[in-house]
Design a protein around this nucleic acid. Structure first.
Lengths: 149, 149
DNA sequence: CGTGAAATCGACCGTAG
DNA sequence: CTACGGTCGATTTCACG
């Protein structure tokens, strides 16, 4: 993982459809060398996957929501993590330091849908307390990659 | 934007390197029709870009951090948003409801680096109060796409 | 939206530094 | 061990029906 690898990764992050010849011209290598490096980066797991960054609005999920969660004392934590991993709306779920146990990031079409999500969590007996935060605007939105349905 | 478009997007999200013929086989269209749909989706902005999802650990930024921020009363909010957009460590920045004004998500190599980040915010006279939360583990990590340097 | 042809691209090889 | 150039097969792309 040298400077050239980092440069290649930077170029791919901006546009993964650039040709090997094009990338090679930018980093000073032949297309086949670039190909070999990308192959290695992918095989080693540094590049997890080639994907697409989508516009949330076009996908009908304009509303970005963060939910801080404290699990019920009798909740099955492993089951909750598995549930989060499978839930199509949950884009991220992190076990965090501080007053709350988990931070969940999700996207919905509109705020009223959040209620259903929380009800679902409650029905599964995961939810102790929670606090919901809605993004009003996003100076740095970050990429949006939907989860497999 | 019909069901087939959604299906194509779902396939591309999982693996953007699949051939048009392969995708066509999965959705029941010819390669050229799939190509035309992807071209339209890209032109309309629904697909923002083709990119790569990376392993944060391989990139040397294992530590995921969320920082709640209340700006100083005399802070230039537009300047802060611009600063956040340009900052290479800041992956996301959202203006949010609730007690705090902004939620910032960033990745660093290790926790001590957070201190430098906060000091930088303070030096620019943006930072009023803040609260830092570190992710211990991530049941649903979400994709990692670095920002252009 | 599908078919076909043409141009381009990517994968794999042997070879060299 | 990594880079290079050439070849072949696959893929994208475009005009047309």
């Amino acid at each position: 993982m040298d400077d050239i690898d980092l440069k290649i990764i930077g170029l791919l992050a901006l546009d993964a459809k650039r040709s090997l010849a094009d990338i090679g011209g930018s980093v000073g290598l032949s297309p086949s060398s670039v190909n070999e490096r990308i192959r290695r980066l992918t095989a080693s797991g540094a590049i997890r996957q080639f994907t697409v960054d989508l516009d949330p609005a076009a996908m009908g999920v304009q509303t970005l929501v963060f939910v801080w969660i404290a699990l019920r004392e009798d909740a099955d934590e492993a089951a909750f993590r598995d549930y989060a991993a499978r839930h199509p709306l949950i884009l991220e779920c992190h076990h965090v330091t501080g007053a709350w146990a988990y931070l969940v990031k999700l996207r919905v079409g509109a705020p009223p849908e959040i209620e259903g999500f929380l009800a679902e969590l409650k029905a599964h007996r995961y939810l102790g307390r929670s606090e919901t935060v809605i993004a009003l605007s996003s100076p740095v939105p970050g990429p949006f990659v939907p989860k497999e349905s």
